[in-house]
Amino acid sequence: MGRKSKQEEERVANRIEELRTQAGLSRQELADQVGVHYQTIGYIERGEYSPSLVLALKIAAVLDKSVEQVFQIEEDK
């Protein structure tokens, strides 16, 4: 009945791990290129943290994809 929390409302799925592996990049290499800690890439890949728009754009640029190809809003089941 109550309002859904921000986390519940905004579940964002991503294909970073798949695309990163295809590009032959480690978490550390991707992290270095976008200017964050490698742990942060892990949190994003596992869906534990939704990145800012700027970081999402940077990740997509490094992976040579559009943001929509990397991140999608997860459908409610």
């Binding site: 800690h37 942060t40 970081l55």
Partner: peptide, 17 residues
């Protein structure tokens, strides 16, 4: 926690949040 409370320039947006 990698000095997260000490130096803004050393932390990324996840650590900031």
């Amino acid at each position: 926690i990698r000095f997260a409370f000490d130096d803004d320039s050393q932390i990324d947006e996840y650590q900031h949040e």
